[in-house]
């Protein structure tokens, strides 16, 4: 499918054109939801280019910020419209780790790809994941860390979710500097995501999104 001019502008990181096109569409009376879908289609272009090695984290971050800036005028109308989300992710940096950068990138990239993100912040208590799962009924839980010392905290957080009887309701994705496939196995998560975009691909696959 050929992307619309707005989706193309986001895909090409053409910030000014994206912002102008959204303003023009709103002025013409186009529905905010439909404009949002075009912006999300632009993020899919960005994701494809990331996977193809043309774009890097720098472009993912810039694209997500263009998405946020261009989409800002839509927010008022979107509040009263049905949210165009394909699923929910509860996300947090695990207990005893205060690093937020990787987690923040995941939150930004996931939400600009149409996934609702419930961000629990950093140094998240194990029980807080359980509470958030009960409250938001997510399909996905994301856990991040930058320290090997908190592998056990990640493992315990997953165990706490299991003991609460919620483990089968969610798929757990993990990532962060020292995390690898062996860590995934050790902590008992479902997926190890090397990059934020890996997370998007896995999330879309789980949610059955094109």
């Amino acid at each position: 499918m050929i992307p619309s001019p707005l989706a193309q502008a986001v895909g090409d990181l053409d910030e000014q054109t994206a912002v102008t096109l959204v303003e023009e569409k709103l002025a013409k009376g186009e529905a905010a939801l439909s404009i949002l879908e075009e912006l999300q289609a632009g993020m899919s272009v960005v994701g494809e280019r990331f996977e193809g090695g043309e774009y890097y984290l720098s472009e993912l971050i810039y694209a997500a910020d263009i998405f946020k800036k261009a989409g800002a005028p839509l927010q008022e109308e979107l509040k009263s419209a049905a949210p165009a989300t394909s699923g929910t992710l509860v996300l947090g940096t695990v207990k005893n780790d205060i690093h937020d950068f990787g987690k923040d990138i995941v939150a930004t990239v996931m939400s600009s790809n149409g996934i609702k993100v419930v961000d629990l912040g950093v140094n998240v208590e194990h029980q807080a994941f359980v509470t958030a799962i009960r409250e938001h009924s997510p399909q996905l839980v994301g856990m991040s860390c930058l320290l090997t010392t908190v592998f056990d905290d990640m493992k315990e957080a997953i165990q706490t979710i299991k003991e609460a009887g919620l483990r089968d309701q969610v798929k757990i994705l993990i990532g962060g500097g020292p995390v690898d496939e062996a860590t995934r196995e050790y902590v008992g998560a479902d997926y190890y995501c090397r990059t934020a975009q890996d997370g998007v691909v896995v999330a879309k696959q789980i949610l059955g999104v094109e």
């Binding site: 090997t148 010392t149 592998f151 020292p178 995390v179 690898d180 062996a182 860590t183 050790y186």
Partner: peptide, 9 residues
Amino acid sequence: VPPALFSLG
């Protein structure tokens, strides 16, 4: 030698 190997290996 990877940090995770020192910790978990």
